[in-house]
Nucleic acid binder design. Structure first.
Length: 592
RNA sequence: GGUCCGGUAGCUCAGUUGGAUAGAGCAUCAGCCUUCUAAGCUGAGGGUCAUUGGUUCGAAUCCAAUCCGGAUCACCA
């Protein structure tokens, strides 16, 4: 049980016995005490004062005395300031906690709870390479999956590849028109970038054709429909859904190029999936479901043969689920996918890590699933995250301001190398060890940077300033870990020695008090699907440890007893930093 | 226009069942390496918590109105 829960429990029991009436946790608050005041945790008594009609001093003294007398293993003192009862937790409590857990690498994690959750993330389109926004998605999805695992859930990581649709046909058409048979091999280009170039070419050509038509007096709307290259793409989509062999052949070839490119990127950034779904499969079940929905009267067919659902009674609009030419749209495949996921895994919750620009889409999807009576409709959860923007605004491919994922990783690794070489602390490393270290630090900096912000909020990335290696960053936490490891190596590790419960110095206590909160932080991070809780926590712990480290020597501690205490403190800090960072997908080095 | 989200230090961000004098990092300034890794530590300056009103012992936090920014409402995905 966490210390906060222990305090709540003890206060509840004390109030009941003192005033002979029942109280709950809601009648008072237990908060950590601010630095300026003496003590560790405070009981906020204002509402108790009101209901009991007692003075703060009287209530505080009654409660304080009772707590000290009846829970001596928990409390060693109290102060009353206004309506706050400030409690000092007994050093013996912290000693016991440290003694019991300092070597437990699973500290804070929960046992399996029997619940199964799927986390879908990444979900790339096969017409262009990944950019900085995708990185936020990948890191977020991966981390949330790990956080849920640490809280006892069985987690299945999934990925839906948006491998069909008009956007794919666009890059295919452009390749046919402009490539002259070029391939990633002949041009020595990474497959996803290669295909992405043709998607850009399509858009350029389309724009030219539309402008040309407008120049001939065609109105804009008509011109956009009649541009030959767009018509060709639409025809190709029809041919694709009809299974025309040469189209399927080209589609497979171009997708295989993209997958080869993605694989390289995923491997570098450490994204992995237990199952990969393809829209080219899931849309079929979606189409069948549309037929069933039509039969049930949930969807309706217009005169032009397009199929719609009317959600105006639910405060939303009408939504198309199938085009007039019979081909399926984005949401059609999602209707199929939701069922595929449940049928295969019988999951208790289905989490979709998708940008907040699709809030409306996901709301519609969930509503449609409910109306269709799909078994897991209620368990669909959209983990919506904000866009990554530049100081100048949104990233725009047309203006060339998109920050490419591969470029970003390259740059981070180069920066890690530069800093490491400047500091010159690992000159004895082999080439292989150095490469691994640059990976650890460079990716660590990038992941931490993207995960330290609340996922719900949009965030600004300034390429000019680049990603820092000091302060609230991944390398800061990694460095703290490396320093501890260095001490443990030099002092030969920590002995399993029983400590006499003595007195803790303030900085020693700060460290253990912070460590104790790890488990609660894990719970909160899982409940809110929010890795930034973990990032904030590990940074805070590292910072507090660094203060302690600067002020007190471990190797030359005042007594042998103190030395052991501090070794255990350091060991436990390293363990918790490592497991916290692991939940963010970040490795911690032994040396750096 | 409808719906949703946001506005906290020069910049990037923390800060919810309403609690004490609103916190970090970066940047700026002043200190700290003959002692366990200075990618570190200590300190200083920096705030109309968008604005106004309300609710109460107490509001960055809850309510209302206003201002500003963004997303979305496609036979794109």
């Amino acid at each position: 049980m966490s210390i906060v829960k222990e305090i709540q429990q003890s206060v509840k029991e004390s109030l009941a016995s003192l005033f002979n009436q029942p109280f709950t946790e809601k009648d008072f608050q237990v908060n950590q005490i601010k630095q300026e005041f003496e003590g560790d945790y405070t009981v906020v008594m204002f509402s108790l004062i009101k209901t009991l009609k007692l003075s703060p001093d009287f209530l505080g003294n009654q409660l304080g005395e009772h707590l000290i007398k009846n829970y001596p293993q928990l409390f060693s003192g109290y102060h009353i300031i206004k309506g706050f009862l400030n409690l000092t937790v007994a050093d013996a409590y912290w000693f016991a906690l440290l003694q019991k857990n300092y070597n437990d690498v699973c500290f804070g994690k929960k046992v399996m709870n029997g619940k199964k959750v799927m986390v879908e993330y990444s979900s790339p389109n096969t017409n262009k390479p990944l950019h900085l926004g995708h990185l936020r998605n990948n890191f977020l999805g991966w981390s949330v999956a790990e956080i849920l695992k640490a809280n006892g859930y069985e987690v299945i990581k999934s990925c839906i590849v948006n491998d069909r649709g008009i956007h794919i046909c666009k890059s295919m058409i452009a390749w046919q028109l402009f490539a002259n048979g070029a391939t990633p091999q002949t041009t020595n280009t990474k497959g996803d970038h290669f295909v992405g170039e043709y998607y850009v070419k399509f858009n350029d050509e389309y724009k030219l054709q539309v402008e040309a038509l407008i120049g001939k007096g065609v109105n804009k709307e008509e011109a956009e429909k009649e541009a030959p290259i767009m018509k060709a793409a639409k025809e190709m989509l029809l041919d694709w859904e009809a299974g025309k062999p040469e189209i399927i052949e080209l589609w497979k070839t171009m997708n295989s190029w993209v997958y080869a490119g993605f694989d390289i990127t995923y491997k570098r950034i450490g994204s992995d999936f237990d199952v990969t779904y393809y829209e080219s499969n899931t849309y079929l079940l979606g189409k069948r479901t549309v037929e069933e929905g039509l039969a049930k009267g949930i969807f309706n067919k217009e005169e032009d043969n397009s199929v719609w659902i009317d959600l105006t009674n639910d405060g939303l609009d009408k939504k198309i689920v199938q085009r007039k030419d019979g081909t399926s749209v984005y949401i059609t495949q999602d209707i199929g996918l939701a069922q595929d996921k449940y049928n295969e895994y019988k999951i208790d919750q289905s989490i979709y890590v998708i940008g907040d620009e699709q809030n409306y889409h996901m709301k519609v999807l969930k509503l449609i699933a409910e109306k269709l009576g799909l078994p897991n409709a209620a368990n669909i959860f959209h983990l919506s995250y904000g866009m990554v923007e530049l100081p100048t605004g949104k990233m725009k491919s047309r203006e060339g301001t998109v920050v490419d994922a591969d470029d970003m990783v390259d740059e981070m690794l180069a920066t890690a190398q530069k800093h490491t070489e400047e500091l010159g602390k690992v000159k004895d490393f082999t080439a292989e060890e150095l490469k691994e270290l640059y990976d650890t630090i460079g990716l660590g900096a990038m992941k931490f940077y993207l995960l330290r912000v609340d996922p719900k909020k949009k965030m600004v990335f300034n390429p000019e300033e680049s990603i820092d290696f000091h302060g609230f960053t991944g390398p800061f936490v990694q460095y703290t870990h490396a320093r501890i490891k260095s001490i443990l190596r030099k002092l030969g590790g920590t002995r399993q020695e029983k400590l006499q419960a003595g007195t803790l110095l303030p900085l020693e206590k700060d460290v253990i008090v912070t460590i104790e909160q790890f488990s609660s932080v894990l719970e909160k991070a899982a409940a809110e699907h929010n890795p930034s809780e973990i990032a904030n926590f590990v940074f805070n712990l590292a910072k507090i440890f660094n203060s302690f480290y600067t002020e007190h020597s471990i190797a030359n501690a005042e007594t042998a007893e103190k030395k052991q205490l501090r070794l255990q403190l350091a060991t436990m800090t390293a363990n918790v930093l490592k497991s916290g960072m692991q939940l963010l997908g970040i490795k911690v080095p032994e040396r750096m």
